[in-house]
Nucleic acid binder design. Structure first.
Lengths: 97, 97
DNA sequence: AAACTATTTAGAATTATTTCTAAATAGATA
DNA sequence: TATCTATTTAGAAATAATTCTAAATAGTTT
């Protein structure tokens, strides 16, 4: 997915908390939702967004849908940031209407 | 400034383009604004936001206000991301209403 | 001082994101 | 099959972010 989408995804505190929660173990949608003072539907919306952007993956098991962190996507963000500490060969983050 | 604010700041494509433009040279508000198809006021709003978050600094010189990139703030973002590739000693991104 | 230049501030309009409730799916169990 | 459980989808309401125009600042130049 695009860097733009990825950065937007991690710019929300609820979504970051979801990622951090998944850092230690795989969890079902319900288990994740239980950690928030938000409706299940709202958490489901955030999970969908994180999935679209590739930051998490999901797998169905019995009655539950388990979510897992997908660390590899962070590399894209790192690459963008490294561009600033490195030389002047400029990068290019789409956008700028 | 907070990680939350910083991530929100870089989640906007216009602001990322400003950062990238400042990567190579210091520029005045007008020079920066000229690169966008947006009003000067709008660009000024983005510059203010980036300044608040510490990603850029400004200095007045004659009739102009020059902006400079402040790379050090990126470290905070890097630290957050590194937490995922590293062990399980969990971090903590405020938020989660 | 008056006029000019560069930029910001205010406030409103527009657009996007988040959240909620209610209903829909889809699979599991009785 | 009927019912139950976990989760998602739809659509509306609430909140937040972006953008604009017009006016305000502040410092320069004549």
């Amino acid at each position: 997915m695009s860097l733009n989408e990825t950065l937007k995804a991690i710019s929300d505190p609820v979504r970051r908390q979801i990622l951090e929660s998944l850092k230690n173990q795989s969890q079902s949608a319900g288990e994740i939702a239980a950690q928030f003072d938000l409706s299940q539907a709202t958490v489901s919306y955030h999970l969908k967004l994180l999935t679209q952007v590739g930051l998490i993956t999901s797998r169905k098991e019995k009655n539950w849908i388990y979510y897992d962190l997908n660390i590899s996507v962070f590399e894209e963000i790192l690459a963008w940031i490294y561009n600033f500490s490195k030389g002047p060969e400029s990068s290019n983050s789409e956008g700028g209407k």
